[in-house]
């Protein structure tokens, strides 16, 4: 190829600079907490989800479905701070081995900018818990587990429940399948909207090793809990 004239030579340099800007911007976007993703869903979507929950909750109360659960105190997860943008992610619904309402993730961001997740069950659009034979709505002020899902790996939380279930749940930024192992049992779950996932295991034996494998930017990240 012959030597380029000045205009084309300079244009090549400007394209290279534009490429560098675009790559930097993309990197910054990747490093941002994913909370922006559901903020980007916009108020109408969040409002619609909340409205559906409130509406269905009202029906449930008329049905005598139980009082809302009071948030537990002394939980060691980060404290919830006015989760105005909390959203139940119905597409994360995972069945329970004994049947009943599916398990789902509710996600929000706290005022520190961290991503937070809660796990509960979804019944007629209401996020809550089954206590005995009753379904009780879980209020938005219930505590969640907060961290930043990003380059270091997914946000992962574990909950052992009174129904003798071990729930491993969280947010996987890459949305590639997550493999969850509890003791010698494994499940491969595909993250749903916003990267939310739940793996449900029978039994709630404390001390069992829990390993979560996921892909972040093409590399495998292993979390041992």
């Amino acid at each position: 190829m012959s030597e380029l004239p000045p205009g084309l030579d300079d244009f090549g340099r400007r394209l290279e600079q534009a490429a560098a800007r675009e790559i930097d911007e993309r990197e910054r976007e990747r490093e941002r907490p994913p909370r922006r993703r559901w903020r980007n869903l916009g108020l109408p979507v969040v409002a619609a989800v909340l409205a559906a929950a409130v509406s269905a909750g009202a029906v449930k109360l008329v049905d005598g479905g139980g009082d809302p659960i009071t948030p537990e105190s002394g939980d060691d997860s980060a404290r919830l701070q006015a989760p105005q943008d909390s959203a139940v992610i119905p597409s994360s619904a995972t069945g329970d081995p004994a049947g009943g309402p599916p398990w789902v993730v509710r996600a929000y961001s706290n005022t520190a900018g961290n991503d937070c997740v809660q796990v509960g069950r979804l019944r007629r659009g209401v996020f809550g818990q089954v206590q005995g034979t009753q379904f009780r709505p879980l209020p938005a002020s219930a505590p969640g587990t907060c961290a930043t899902a990003g380059a270091s790996g997914p946000l992962v939380a574990v909950r052992r429940t009174a129904e003798l279930r071990t729930l491993v749940f969280g947010l996987a930024v890459d949305r590639t399948p997550v493999t969850v192992s509890v003791g010698d049992r494994s499940q491969r779950v595909r993250p749903a909207g916003l990267g939310a996932f739940v793996a449900v295991f029978e039994g709630a034996t404390p001390g069992q090793p829990i390993v979560v494998r996921s892909a972040v930017n093409g590399r495998t990240v292993v979390r041992r809990l």
């Binding site: 000045p6 205009g7 084309l8 244009f11 400007r14 534009a18 675009e22």
Partner: peptide
């Protein structure tokens, strides 16, 4: 969208295009 001007049509550039 890229915030980039097109290549400048300097005399040298136009002559280069004519030649190549």
């Amino acid at each position: 969208r890229l915030g980039c001007d097109p290549p400048q049509s300097t005399d040298a550039d136009l002559e280069w295009v004519e030649r190549v």
